[in-house]
Computed example of a mutant assay.
Amino acid sequence: MPCYTYILKCSDNTLYTGWTNDLVKRIKTHNAGKGARYTRGRLPVKLLYYEIFSTKQEAQRREVQIKKLSRQEKLSLIKNS
């Protein structure tokens, strides 16, 4: 089963990065207010970017890498995808 690392744009224009093994379901969960605490007060969220991995560990590693990027670096990653 594939895993995904993703970047969301929140309603307050901030970016949120996470990982999941079911991208469609996870976005719905976020928008239902049942996702991460960070996104609950910043609804709705919109998927801007994602990468696909074959293992959970790879997706989690990539999430950590992306979270260390600056906002500008994240926007550049999104733009160049």
Rank of each mutant, 00 (worst) to 15 (best):
T17H: 01
V64E: 12
M1F: 10
S76C: 09
P2D: 13
A59Y: 02
N31L: 14
R26M: 13
K25M: 06
I66K: 07
P2Y: 06
R71K: 14
T20M: 05
G35H: 01
Y50D: 08
R61T: 11
K28D: 14
L43G: 12
L48M: 13
L75R: 09
H30E: 11
S76D: 15
D12I: 04
K28W: 09
G41Q: 08
C3N: 14
I52T: 14
I7A: 09
F53V: 06
A36W: 00
T20W: 03
C3A: 11
T14I: 03
T17L: 01
S54P: 02
G33P: 01
L15F: 15
I7S: 09
T29Y: 00
Q72P: 04
S54C: 03
K25V: 04
E58A: 11
C3D: 06
L8T: 11
N21T: 11
G35F: 00
R62V: 02
T55G: 11
I27A: 02
S76W: 12
V45I: 10
C10W: 06
R26A: 11
Y4M: 04
N80G: 01
A59S: 15
Q72L: 12
T29N: 07
Q65V: 12
Q65I: 15
G18V: 02
T20A: 07
F53T: 05
S11P: 03
V64N: 05
Y16Q: 02
A59F: 02
T29D: 03
D12R: 06
L69I: 07
L48R: 06
L8M: 13
S81F: 01
Y4P: 03
T17N: 06
K28P: 05
A59H: 04
S11G: 04
I27T: 01
I7W: 12
W19V: 03
K68C: 04
Q65G: 08
T17I: 15
K34S: 10
Y50R: 09
K28Q: 14
K9Q: 15
E58S: 12
L47A: 09
R40K: 15
L48T: 00
N31P: 13
E58N: 08
K25E: 07
K34D: 11
L69F: 15
L69K: 14
S11L: 02
V24T: 11
K46H: 12
Y50A: 07
Q72V: 09
E63Y: 10
F53K: 05
T29W: 01
M1L: 10
G35N: 03
L47T: 05
K9D: 07
S54A: 07
Y38H: 13
K25N: 09
L75S: 07
K46C: 13
G35R: 01
V24E: 10
K56Q: 12
R42D: 00
S11E: 05
Q57P: 00
S11R: 03
K68F: 01
A59C: 07
A36I: 00
R61V: 07
D22S: 12
I52A: 09
K74Q: 10
Q57F: 01
Q57K: 06
R61H: 09
S54M: 02
R61P: 02
R62S: 05
N80Y: 08
I52G: 05
L15Y: 15
K74R: 13
Q72F: 11
R37D: 08
